[in-house]
Design a protein around this nucleic acid. Structure first.
Lengths: 233, 233
DNA sequence: TCGCTGTCAAGAGCAGTGCTCTCGTTTGTG
DNA sequence: CACAAACGAGAGCACTGCTCTTGACAGCGA
């Protein structure tokens, strides 16, 4: 399926229709849940269901496209939230701004969040294309901590030791993504990102119902706790 | 649908067949993913698909039964892991034992874990019956911390302040479940449980692929970090 | 300008799904 | 023993993803 990106009329129409299909799919995803129906999408666009297969080989391929888009959107939300924060030395503020933006995005697009960070869609295996966009969000968080480390603005928080071999693995990962961050720091960032993900998922998937109503304050409390655990101040 | 639990032959056969249907459903869930097919279950049991509806009114009802069972199994795993730990005063050890047991259960029954703690199944709304079994697991964790607090074995860890109104809400929750734990402590337990959930989900849903291979050590590091954050020592 | 080629939408059709209704049969009980 | 409740099987409806075939159209070289 070699896609000639010529500016021919045909290519442009094709790109536009592809985009329309995806947005119809997103709409249906939000309305009906994760098992989207190709026939319903086709119906909404006023075309035959078989015509859809000219644009996406099967349902999985459509899902993959949506997943990649969602990862990119989430990553973009994180990046702009960080970039918009003026006082670059206020690392806690940046951490709060980014994690809040992640939560806001998730609450605005719950079905797409569930698509990328919920349980895998039945019978669907994620292709390798998704690993790139997926790392965008944690990279923003790691970047904030790297900035703080470079500025010598990380408090010395006591933490459990990181086993040597795990440490080596983390070092290799840091090098692979060109991140200058001591391994114990990287470990804490991943841990904090894991907690943030858990907090958003808990809220989104209803685990907080009948437990905590003041969601905004609760999220902020957690984000501040994680910032403190990392050593931001 | 009043269920007379008489010990008649019919009632016993009904209970047995109900159990067989559930275990067939579990098997299919593990093999095929979350969208289980009633017809396939019926085929496996050698009965007509319509006969299944004598036992479960619809697919959702079967799913609900599986979800309740899974919550109970996860809660039981947590409780036995805690009960088996001899040195009751070793609160860190108990915390580690319980969280490890949760992870082990999740790795052993990934599809059932996804059922209860992953993204909600499309078009399925959780009935109220699930809230009881769902709270079993976090209650075990809270119990450990309550024991530590009662024994005066909680270190004074600096933590962000909990806003007054949120604090009141937490106090109400603690009272409702008859838990004697100061609100800041309860907040940290929920936060740690959230992190644990995130850690297990990350590993299970493939977010750790190409990032961390030494899964056991990584999980232990996180569990110890959360124990330290709570103040267990 | 003509004709060829690749692209496209549409329709029919296959195998599968959840679910309902009906029809005999079996079973427990008054 | 008789009757009502419970039960299994089958047909059928509306729906799904997906494939194959058919006919129409656009863009290009000769």
């Amino acid at each position: 399926m070699v896609e000639r990106t010529g500016t021919s009329i045909r290519a442009r129409l094709r790109a536009e229709l592809t985009e329309e299909i995806k947005s119809a799919a997103r709409r249906q995803l939000a309305a009906e849940g994760a098992n989207l129906s190709l026939r319903a999408i086709a119906r909404e666009l006023g075309m035959a269901s078989s015509a859809l297969y000219r644009y996406f080989a099967n349902r999985d391929e459509l899902l993959t496209a949506l997943i990649i888009d969602a990862y990119d959107a989430l990553g973009a939300a994180a990046e702009t939230a960080d970039a918009r924060h003026r006082r670059r030395g206020d690392h806690v503020g940046r951490w709060l701004a980014v994690t809040r933006a992640l939560r806001t995005w998730a609450l605005a697009y719950p079905s797409e969040y569930a698509l990328i960070l919920g349980s895998p869609v039945p019978g669907y295996r994620a292709p390798a294309d998704t690993t790139g966009p997926a790392s965008r969000t944690p990279l923003v968080l790691a970047g904030i901590v790297a900035d703080a480390a470079a500025a010598g603005a990380l408090a010395d928080v006591p933490a459990p030791p990181v086993p040597a071999k795990l440490r080596a693995e983390l070092a290799a990962t840091a090098e692979r993504i060109a991140l200058t961050l001591p391994e114990p720091m990287l470990a804490r960032v991943i841990l904090a990102w894991t907690q943030t993900y858990g907090a958003i998922s808990f809220e989104l998937f209803g685990q907080l119902d009948n437990l905590i109503d003041r969601r905004d304050e609760w999220f902020d409390y957690q984000a501040r706790s994680m910032a403190a655990l990392i050593g931001l101040h």
